[in-house]
Structures are given as structure tokens and as C-alpha cells.
Design a protein around this nucleic acid. Structure first.
Lengths: 272, 272
DNA sequence: TTTCAAGTTCCAATATGTGAAACTTGGTTT
DNA sequence: AAACCAAGTTTCACATATTGGAACTTGAAA
């Protein structure tokens, strides 16, 4: 679960490592919980937690004496989701796609070496955003993960692969670098890939990368279903439709410019 | 828009200041855009941006040569929203409330000296989460902002007030500390407050703080409408119902413990 | 009262961050 | 093609912030 973000980004990198560590617990934690897993001495961890808390990146619950990721992150993520994710651009496309094919559509991007889902549409369901966006999954055994990896430059790919756990989830999980690399080559040949119950039993999907004109990986799109409802051949038949959506998203992402509001910035906020 | 998070939290604080600065533009920015507004010399800003980018807190678009808040924030915010915000607990309550009263319900918390909306339910509308959660607004001229301020301890209140801009949005905006303090006293007496078109013309709301048993401010709840649809007296009639929701949320927030999953942590993620 | 774990503070040594200035890059003008 | 300029990047001596061992405080339990 630890991540080699670069190597050493000095104090800031270490502080963010602590932030990630707190987040990784998935529940509010005590100082000692953090200390236990942190690769720094007590006083150092203490100072980082103090700083992060004072900065609003962590929130402290005085009743329970616990720390959790702070709401300042929610505000920052609002900007991030709008500006750095494909979701705002992709939303109409994946919405239409989900409606047409009648299956769940995922939009994902790479975060470090993990798959980060930035949007999810379940046809007919109202959208429960934060509970879905922000979720992470393994790259080596999900459709979107493999689709993205297949189009990374060799260097970057090597770095990503080096961070995969190759944990065996099901009998179909690709459990070695060798198997994965072979699969990636296949995906490159076809232009699309599948998840053949590699991560969860009965869950299958067809996934397609979203690429810039220069071939840079922006993200990936997948249509997910279960073996009870359908099969790989049927999903494969949807590929042209998914491809159209992926292409449309890529086009818009490249031509998209933020409306120039630099001067009409909301003057509403706190003191300037 | 600048914020005095504590005073100086050393290097980490400065780096986060740059992060906030980038986010504050509301659009992808060039290095020089950041430099222009940053209170640090070129080389220093440069190093921070490099570090933040390498850390995934900023994302860099090589085509356009711009920086924007990075998707790592989305992952972190997922944890933050689940653990530090009232939203997951409050959702059923505010959902029911919105349905019953047939008006928009906001759930907000304080982030530094600003109001941060963590959830919003529009009755009959599907939920568009990230586009709403994460939004910020001024504390001194919103119902939720005033409701929360009314119950802060004097010290904290002073700090928050000191950061208000008192920008005049409408003819009803409380434009001075004095006027605001008088209003807060009123709110304390009643236990609830209003937004009387103070922020936007025609927009009114009734707001109620969410407090722990010890009186600590957790957040605030509001029912929003417009002068075309209703009036303050009608909103005031809803107060008991809103109060019930706020109380229910406060109770659950206090008794809530995260299910102890410390050992069954998802083994799915990247390398351990 | 004693004990212990958890959390907090201190401070000398030194690793880190700082920022003026020099340099490189890529595009535009003469 | 040469000169120019703005934007971005690198360098390095200096100063400061970070480091972490150890001592201290707190609060709960024996």
C-alpha cells in the first residue's frame, strides 16, 4: 500500500506520505496507529500530524482523539475533479453510453500505479458520486488498468508494473509480470481489452483506453457486467460503441479550454 | 482568497499554500501565473510545483504546459468525505428532509473561515455530487455560515470573523462585524437563523447548526428556497422539522464508530 | 501510591530549503 | 540569420528549518 512517489521529495514528500498513511487506514486513527506504520521517529511524525492538522489536511476529533483526512481535501478535490479529471467532459458521453448499452460504465485514470475511478454510471440509478469517485483498484487485474498500461511508454510502464502486487484474487488473475506483459501486447494489437473475472468472480468487462492524438494515456472507459447477465462475446460486440465514446472524450479533452474567467473569479470567498 | 492557516507551518505549509493558490485559479495555470501571485521567489515556487507535481497533488498537462490540482486529491478526498464529513451519516436524514419539505437542502461544514458545502439534495433531482460537494461560500452572509459561527467559542469566532471580507452582495448583506455579531446573538437565542437574500437576490434559507452534546460545532443544515416560491415565515415553520434532522445527525455522528476493519484492509491495492 | 502507555516538548547537530543570479529554450522581431 | 525577449530551468553558497534522541507530562489502570 506504500507508494514510491518519485523518491524523496524532501519534507513535503514525507508529510504527504503521512497524509496518505492516515488515509490508507480507511478509518479515523490515533497518533500511535500512525506512528506504528510510519517510517519516521516519533517526534517527526508528531510534527507532521500537527502541521497537517493545522493546515486542514487532517481533521482531529478531540472527543475520540483521532485523526482523519480533512475536509480541506474535499475543497481541493472539487477543483481537481473539475480540472484534472476527464469526468466533467466525459459525463454526457458515458451517460449516453450507459443508457444505450444498459450496463454500468466506469471512467478511470491512473493515480501513481493504481486505477482511480473518477466516475461511474449505473443505468437507471441516481448518481451517488463521492461514494464512487475516488475509489481505487489494482491496475494489473482490472480492464481499465490493463487498457491504460497497454499504452504507456516503456519506462513509465516498467515503473507501474514494479508497483503491482500481483495478488491472486481469482483463478483467472494474471499473477505475473510475464502474463501481464503478454496480455498488454494483445490489448495493443486489438485496441481494447477485457477483465475476464480477474479481479472479482463473475465480474467481466470490456475496456478501452482514452488517448490523445499523440498517444498519451488520458484514462480508460469500461463497460462492466456479470457472467450471469452476459458474456465476453456480447461485450466485445459493444466495443465499437465504446470506442466511439472514448474517441469523443479524447477529442473534447484535447480541444477543451477552460472558459477564461480569470477576472470574474467569484469574489464571494473569504477575505482577499 | 488567501488564508492564514495557522501562521507558518514551515515548508509543508508553504507548499500547501502553493497548492491552494493553483486551485484558486479555477482553471489550469502556467508556471508564471502561479509565480505572479505567489509570495515566494521564482526558484522556490518552481521547486514546490515540481514537488507537488511529482507527488500527484498537481497534474501537469505537457501539451498546454499547465498545472491543475491533481487526481491524487480525488482519492484523498474520498477518504475525507467518508470519514471527516457528516455527509455519509447525514445523507438519509437530509434526503428525507428534502423530500418532505420539497425544497433544496444543504449540508455544510467550516473549512478555515469559509463555508464548505459537503452535500446538497434537490428534491426530485438525481444527485450530481462532485459538482456540488466541495463548493465554498462566504460564512458571514449565508445561513449555514452564520448558524455555525453563532456557536463557535469566542476565540475561534474572532479568528473566523477576522477573515471575512464583508463584501456587499445585496442590499441585505450584513456588511460589518458589528451587524454580524448582533445577528449571531439573535441566532443563539433562537437556535436557528436565516439568510435574508444576503448573498443572492431572491434566495432565502433557514439554517440550523449541528452540534455535539458538548456544544461543539460539527456543521449546519439549511433549507433553501426563493422569494418567488415562499417566504421567511413559511421557512420558519419548517424549523422544527429541520431541527429534528439536525439533532438526529448530531446523535449519529457522536455514537458512530467506524466498523473495525483494521485487519481486513483491502489487499487489492498496489504493492504492500 | 506506583506503573505504564500514550502523547507532548526540548534542543544541539545538521540535513534541507532558500533565492539571487546565471543559464537554456523556443518563439518572435529586425 | 542574427538579435532579442519572455518563459522556464539549473546552480550553489548561505541560512534556516528539520531532525530525532531523550526527557517530560498526562491520564488511566493496577
Amino acid at each position: 500500500m506504500s507508494q514510491d512517489r518519485g523518491k524523496s521529495d524532501g519534507t513535503v514528500g514525507k508529510a504527504l506520505e503521512i497524509l496518505d498513511l492516515v488515509a490508507s487506514f480507511g478509518r479515523p486513527v490515533r497518533f500511535s496507529d500512525v506512528l506504528e506504520r510510519a517510517p519516521f521517529p516519533k517526534a517527526t511524525v508528531y510534527r507532521f500530524i500537527q502541521t497537517l492538522t493545522s493546515q486542514g489536511m487532517l481533521s482531529y476529533d478531540p472527543d475520540r482523539q483521532t485523526y482523519a483526512p480533512g475536509i480541506r481535501l474535499v475543497r481541493l478535490a472539487h477543483s481537481a475533479w473539475q480540472q484534472s479529471s476527464l469526468a466533467p467532459i466525459a459525463r454526457p458521453h458515458i451517460d449516453a453510453l450507459a443508457q444505450e448499452v444498459g450496463e454500468t460504465v466506469h471512467l478511470a485514470q491512473l493515480d501513481n500505479a493504481q486505477v482511480l475511478y473518477v466516475d461511474k454510471i449505473v443505468p437507471g440509478q441516481p448518481i451517488e458520486m463521492y461514494s464512487q469517485a475516488g475509489k481505487v483498484g489494482p491496475a494489473y487485474c482490472t480492464g481499465v488498468g490493463k487498457a491504460m498500461m497497454a499504452y504507456l511508454e516503456p519506462e513509465h510502464l516498467a515503473a507501474v508494473i514494479a508497483q503491482q502486487s500481483f495478488h491472486v484474487f481469482t483463478e483467472y488473475t494474471l499473477a505475473s509480470e510475464q502474463a501481464l506483459r503478454a496480455e498488454l501486447m494483445d490489448i495493443r494489437t486489438n485496441g481494447y481489452g477485457f477483465d475476464r473475472e480477474e479481479h472479482e468472480p463473475n465480474i467481466i468487462c470490456a475496456a478501452i483506453p482514452i488517448l490523445t492524438a499523440q498517444g498519451r494515456v488520458l484514462g480508460a472507459l469500461s463497460v462492466t457486467s456479470s457472467t450471469q447477465r452476459t458474456n465476453l462475446a456480447a461485450l466485445e460486440a459493444l466495443v465499437p460503441r465504446i470506442l466511439r465514446a472514448a474517441f469523443a472524450i479524447a477529442c473534447e479533452a484535447e480541444s477543451w479550454r477552460f472558459p477564461d474567467q480569470s477576472n470574474m473569479q467569484s469574489a464571494q470567498a473569504a477575505k482577499g
